[in-house]
Amino acid sequence: MATAAAENNCVFDLPSLFQVSTAAVLRDLSSHEESLCEMPDSIKQAILHLMSKRGFLTDDNLLKVLFPRLRCLDLSISQVTDKGLQCLPLMRYLQKVDLNSFKEANDRVSSAGIISLCKACPNLQILYLRRNINVTDEAVLELCKNCPYLREFNVGGCFLLTDASLAALGQYSIHLKSLNISSTQITDDGIRQLCNGRCSQLLTEVDMSSCTHLTDEAVENLIMMCPVLRILLFARCPKITENSRVALEERFLSSENAKMKQVSWTIY
């Protein structure tokens, strides 16, 4: 009796007709690409999500699945290059673009593509560009000028970036809260310019790991001038010494509100 009752109450997780249909489009994408432009936004959203997760997005099909009210665009495992980014229409609702490269460096996107992206998306708030090795200071400057609401920015591994990028962020990005500048060419002077900017009062997370030019001065500036900083990562920075750890301890002792969530460093 108990077994029969359990079987009667069993709910089978069957895919909906909508899920089956969108999966069918992806299985024969080449046959459906031309009709993607005519589909309703809700269908484009579902297809775009699947194409993003499976790495199917290219310069040729990207515009066919975009729609004006799109808020998030994941290009992290796509084949999109500068060519695709330079063709983007005005996307006023787009708030997040993920161009992180997870496994190896991405050389398909350069400053030219990023500049086109930020001009097409004036309300961009989150931009991830990790390991996009052809991105330069010029792109960061244009981003800061064109996207005033930027609050999360990841350029870890973009090794062409210098203090000029931090100067631009300090000058223009007044809403910036999270910043990853690991493995770049920044120096203490760049950190000083960032901390002198208005974003210093909002910065909660800074990752500057593997920045080989930084010294204790960079850490001291951040902990003194960024009162709400909660995550600070400076591992593999060979010029940073034990003095930075001492400065952090002094901050904890001098302020009841100086509670860090994560601190990471390497002692040489």
Rank of each mutant, 00 (worst) to 15 (best):
N100R: 14
S76N: 11
K259E: 12
A24I: 02
L29W: 05
P89N: 05
I181A: 07
N146Y: 06
N100M: 03
T212L: 08
R151P: 00
K53T: 08
S210H: 05
L117R: 08
D74W: 01
V135C: 05
T3S: 15
T3P: 00
S173V: 03
L161I: 14
E217M: 10
S209A: 14
N146F: 03
S173G: 10
R108W: 02
Y93W: 08
L66F: 03
L124Y: 00
T266F: 04
Q125C: 12
I133Y: 00
K177Q: 15
S16N: 07
S254H: 12
F12W: 11
I174S: 15
G190I: 00
D60L: 09
A6I: 02
K44Q: 14
S178F: 02
K177T: 10
A6N: 13
C72S: 10
S209G: 13
N132T: 08
Y128G: 13
L179Y: 03
L62R: 08
K83P: 00
M51K: 00
I47L: 13
S116H: 13
D60Q: 14
L94V: 08
G84I: 03
Q95Y: 02
S31Y: 03
T22G: 03
Q185C: 12
S30D: 14
D163T: 02
M51N: 01
T136V: 02
K261F: 05
M51C: 09
S21F: 10
V206T: 05
L90V: 09
T22Q: 02
M225R: 15
L143T: 05
N9V: 05
E7Q: 15
P15E: 04
L94K: 03
T212D: 11
I267F: 05
T3L: 15
L129R: 01
K44A: 02
L229M: 09
D59G: 04
T136Q: 11
L202V: 01
C158W: 04
E152S: 13
A105F: 04
H213S: 14
S178A: 07
L63E: 03
K96R: 14
S182P: 08
L88A: 12
